[in-house]
Nucleic acid binder design. Structure first.
Lengths: 85, 85
DNA sequence: TGAGTATTTAGACAATCTTCTAAATATTTT
DNA sequence: AAAATATTTAGAAGATTGTCTAAATACTCA
């Protein structure tokens, strides 16, 4: 849970998630959308991966990132505890 | 949104929210539940208040804290965007 | 009014985080 | 095999965060 909220606590990372909602992307294309160096984006992607919010699949020399909905469900469940009571 | 995720990105603060789920509490009683000084807890409460996750009402010399469900809804809505698509 | 209780504010310090540049690794293509 | 492209790793620097102690503020009650 800790690493999950940590991963979500950054505008760039949340924007990456929103971008991936519209379709998978490779690391370079993601980086191009931000005014930030590739290593920085790579680090953000690593945090999202650690939190299991995204899945990385190597495709040749590219790495394709996609959303992992399963973990979203876990967070949703955490919030629901407040609603049902 | 930024300040919201920031407020949620801390175990102590999330535990405070979970405690308040079971009923309102004043600052001192909240602090007693943690192995941490009162000023530290006061600071955590301040962040939760800034994020509108809790509401603080002064009652005499005490300050009573309660959950603010409205903002929970806002976060839920952010997550729902990923589910519906 | 003064003493006691509840809470916050101020300031400091160590730990963590975000970003950068430089270099390393992995893959493709010529 | 060498050059080019895609991505990550390593290490550093400045900013932010979590926690503490000491002091200030707010309120109650004798």
């Amino acid at each position: 849970m800790n690493i999950l909220f940590k991963a979500l606590n950054d505008t760039t990372r949340r924007e990456i998630l929103e971008m991936l909602k519209d379709g998978d992307m490779n690391a370079g294309d993601i980086a191009d959308k931000f005014n930030m160096t590739k290593p920085s984006i790579s680090h953000h992607l690593d945090l999202l991966k650690q939190a299991d919010l995204v899945i990385a699949v190597k495709k040749g020399q590219f790495v394709e990132y996609s959303l992992n909905m399963t973990v979203m469900d876990e967070i949703m469940a955490w919030f629901v505890q407040f609603k049902t009571q």
